[in-house]
């Protein structure tokens, strides 16, 4: 539901937010992973998916042949990266989070630079969920440093926000309409919130919890209140004037 009458002729996700989505999701995958065996296939896939996204962008601007070639080559490289990870046969606890991140990034990319606008939201939602699972699993099995995990999870949330913005704006006003100011305003605010979230996570990690701690207790109380406040607003409320 867009809240606006009719449908635009080109309801594809908007380019700026889609680009930010890709940057955030690739960043989440790479920052959240540890070890060359995890990072190398993801880097290859990132290169391939970036080429795919550039190809889709070119196709929408009329460069059909170059666009088709770039999307095809990009998908081949990304697939090659994922197959390479499987071929290396790392242990299962390493392979599964890696595949979750890889497949998730692929799904998000196909979602925000889709061939058909209808599949944009399902693909991006599934992809972000997979990357989230992959990043949290890596946090358990890969034991990366806390800042890497905090940044990775925050980037997943940021990419979700950006993808939702891209898809919603595309559904409302379409790809040919002017949307840059709206996108940049919203993304700037989300980046600030993301920075606050990372800082708060790192600050919370420094609170001593081995003994009695007033600060720790305060954090617990504040987070409980926020959690309750957030829960009281579920489900949605509708007011019509």
């Amino acid at each position: 539901m867009t809240g606006l009458p009719g449908d635009p002729t080109d309801p594809f996700p908007t380019t700026v937010s889609a680009g930010v989505t890709l940057v955030a999701i690739f960043g989440a995958c790479l920052v959240g992973s540890t070890g060359a065996i995890r990072i190398a296939p993801l880097l290859v896939e990132t290169a391939g998916l970036t080429l795919y996204a550039v190809g889709m962008w070119s196709r929408r601007r009329g460069h059909r042949l170059a666009g088709r070639s770039a999307t095809a080559v990009g998908l081949l490289i990304a697939g090659g990266g994922l197959l390479g990870a499987v071929a290396l046969a790392p242990p299962l606890p390493t392979l599964l989070p890696l595949l979750a991140c890889g497949l998730g990034a692929l799904s998000v990319t196909l979602g925000v630079f889709p061939v058909s606008a209808r599949v944009a939201r399902p693909l991006s939602t599934v992809g972000i969920a997979l990357v989230f699972v992959g990043v949290t699993a890596t946090t358990v099995v890969g034991t990366p440093s806390l800042w890497r995990s905090a940044v990775a999870v925050t980037l997943v949330l940021l990419s979700w926000d950006a993808s939702e913005r891209a898809i919603a704006l595309g559904n409302r006003v379409g790809g040919t309409a002017e949307t840059v100011t709206v996108e940049l305003t919203g993304l700037a605010a989300s980046v600030v919130v993301a920075a606050v979230a990372i800082a708060l996570t790192l600050a919370a990690a420094r609170v001593p919890i081995t003994g009695p701690s007033i600060i720790g207790l305060a954090f617990l109380l504040i987070s409980s209140v926020f959690c309750l406040l957030a829960l009281t607003h579920v489900p949605q409320s509708v007011d019509a004037d």
């Binding site: 806390l146 999870v153 925050t154 949330l157 993301a194 979230a197 996570t201 990690a205 987070s223």
Partner: peptide, 8 residues
């Protein structure tokens, strides 16, 4: 700890 960004 990494649940904090979600709450924020």
């Amino acid at each position: 700890l990494v649940s904090i960004p979600g709450v924020v």
